[in-house]
């Protein structure tokens, strides 16, 4: 496959960026999208140019490091992570636009790499449970009802990649925040901080400069892990409940 790539190049956080055009040839349909970028970078290095910086780690869809907006869609045209997207989703001769996550809370570090530290700070503000350290507790010490376990697991699938923020027209982090609030909130282990968690995490989310939710549904459509839009509904309910009790 021969492709034309239009890639966002930005030297550093303060520099102005621009879309640069590159031609890549010899791309196999079975290559992953990141392997295609590796091919581009090899040719850039050989010709003495600066390779394109992009985030990646596990390359098996579980770490949440990869973060590219491909043709205007977070993680590209399939419902998966960029690393699990394969070139067979494209055709020979295609022009592909590759951009970083766009949100003021996710400043560009270089090229396609953005700083997602805001997510870490949201987690720090309440995405934890209080548990004694030491030996692992007896697994059956706390009974977890099956529906609660299912709901918790559904929300625990979030890998914190930030596709929800990238896809949202308001740059909102509601889906990410609600995934963690619900994951821990429905479990008995998370019950002691149930109220303070949602209040603190929403406060942090707002302080980081993320936008509000207008329920466009773009986030849940982009989410590679299928966190449902109703996760946000559930967090809204939790927030009002906690505000009434004042955490």
């Amino acid at each position: 496959m021969k492709l034309t790539l239009r890639v966002w190049r930005q030297k550093n956080a303060d520099a102005d960026g621009t879309m640069s055009t590159y031609e890549v040839d010899g791309i196999a349909k079975d290559m992953s999208f990141l392997e295609m970028l590796d091919t581009l970078n090899e040719s850039l290095i050989l010709s003495g140019e600066d390779p394109v910086a992009f985030d990646h780690d596990c390359r098996e869809g579980i770490c949440g490091a990869c973060s590219l907006v491909i043709n205007g869609e977070a993680h590209g045209p399939e419902r998966t992570t960029t690393c699990q997207l394969h070139m067979r989703a494209f055709s020979d001769g295609d022009t592909i636009d590759i951009e970083p996550w766009r949100a003021s809370a996710f400043p560009v570090v270089k090229d396609l790499v953005v700083d997602r530290g805001a997510f870490d700070r949201i987690i720090q503000s309440g995405g934890y449970i209080t548990a004694p350290t030491g030996a692992a507790p007896e697994a059956h010490a706390t009974a977890v009802p099956k529906p609660a376990a299912d709901t918790a697991f559904e929300h625990a699938e979030c890998i914190g990649c930030g596709a929800c923020v990238a896809a949202c027209p308001n740059g909102s982090a509601m889906l990410f925040t609600s995934a963690k609030v619900n994951h821990l909130g429905v479990l008995p282990q998370g019950a002691p901080e149930r109220e303070s968690r949602v209040l603190d995490m929403v406060e942090r989310m707002d302080a980081e400069g993320f936008g509000g939710c207008t329920l466009t549904g773009e986030c849940a459509t982009a989410c590679p892990k299928g966190i449902p839009l109703f996760s946000i509904t559930r967090m809204n309910r939790e927030f009002v409940r906690a505000a009434r009790k004042r955490g």
Partner: peptide, 30 residues
């Protein structure tokens, strides 16, 4: 607040939001 949170638009708008483009989206497109 929402507008400030998303100051830069994508070079190519997402296909779903622009129906004219959607017709040319790859078949696997969500």
């Amino acid at each position: 607040r929402d507008i400030a949170a998303r100051p830069v638009k994508y070079a190519r708008p997402s296909p779903g939001r622009h129906p004219r483009w959607r017709r040319f989206a790859p078949p696997l497109s969500r």
